[in-house]
Design a protein around this nucleic acid. Structure first.
Lengths: 203, 203
DNA sequence: CGTTAGGTACACCGTTCTGTGTGGTTACGG
DNA sequence: CCGTAACCACACAGAACGGTGTACCTAACG
């Protein structure tokens, strides 16, 4: 993401150590998981001395927490702010996740850390709730009946597709999107009071 | 599960070592995860010598695989064979999972092991596919349009509820059940050809 | 009774892990 | 140009891990 990811030559890596550490964390934690990534490997990828890591982060746990905290804006944050899409399309676009993403890092961290009181687990919860809320807001904008319920449902679909994609090693997002389409259109069709729904309200 | 779980006194634990090992595996692996459970702790809980464990299982990986293999019949196996429920109710009953179950062990193992070629990961895949197939069979029995699609959808809902319950530390199965109800009734209503659907086909 | 399969106790090996201690080097601000 | 903050290399502590070797015991069965 940042332009500091790779050191210029091989000489002195210079001042951007913290960003390089977090960049390597994103790369390794998401691909290999937290527990399977040792600090030595992380230092090698980040081209950073081990000592420097522990100057910036007092422990691996703290690094994991910061890694999750930095994830928030980049994943789904931009999607809900797109004004070029109708609310309905915005919600559906959330399910256009290619097989690139290995696993939602929040689910992975929650499973691997296995401690609900771990700061990282708390971030995971916050993020999940935030996604559901954004869905709910968009659903409300679309004039859905019980937008909070729909938001929670769509968030659940997203998590289900993520988990199932991981376990089965096969893309489950189309299935989730199909379900989402049904739920969204059901919710919008049964609540045509406030907003004049633009398109096909036939049948 | 078995009556051999706890040794009688503290004296000689006797011959049931293998069952005690697997029982302790179920207890610890499901509650703490695979990676956070050491062999020493497992031996202590099972009241079994470490040497005995490695007489029965050549490695921890093999024990994990066996642990997952033994899970199959107990979790959802019995549900689909219940003849006292109509197909529709049978499918919905799958979502009546109390907050007892911490996390589907197959998802946990797949995340923790992180190796699709691990035997345990293969068991996880097989189990997920089997559940989807059982759903599909039941959906077919209920006269659903595209029962395979519905089966995959319901399986995804189950996984989503499981994962979300874990991350949020809150019961997500009611939400999944609500979605399932919509999907099932939609699929049954639009395919009233073969089976005469018993109840309300009004509206 | 004696044999033996199954179990025990416990020390121990090698590896990997997180985290630290130390001393030295480089870059930048004043 | 000097001081300081950031960074580096490297060795190492300490613990936990999976797994083994050895010698012993005992319950069950013939």
């Amino acid at each position: 993401m940042t332009e500091l990811e790779k050191g210029p030559k091989g000489r002195r890596r210079g001042r951007g150590a913290r960003e390089r550490i977090l960049s390597a964390s994103r790369e390794l934690f998401t691909q290999q998981g937290v527990n399977r990534t040792g600090m030595d490997q992380l230092c090698a990828v980040a081209q950073v001395s081990k000592r420097t890591v522990y100057d910036h982060f007092s422990s691996k746990d703290e690094l994991v927490a910061e890694y999750l905290r930095r994830f928030d804006p980049s994943v789904l944050g931009g999607l809900f702010d797109r004004t070029d899409l109708a609310p309905r399309e915005r919600m559906l676009a959330a399910f256009n996740i290619p097989p690139t993403t290995p696993l939602c890092p929040y689910i992975g961290a929650a499973v691997e850390l296995h401690d609900p009181e771990h700061p990282a687990s708390r971030f995971a919860r916050d993020h999940k709730l935030a996604v559901a809320r954004r869905f709910a807001d968009t659903a409300r904008e679309a004039g859905a009946a019980d937008p909070d319920e729909l938001g929670e449902q769509l968030a659940l679909l997203l998590d289900g597709a993520t988990a199932r994609t991981r376990v089965l090693n096969a893309d489950a997002f189309p299935t989730a999107k199909a379900i989402a389409t049904v739920l969204i259109d059901n919710a919008i069709a049964t609540a045509p009071e406030d907003e004049p729904v633009t398109d096909d309200t036939t049948s």
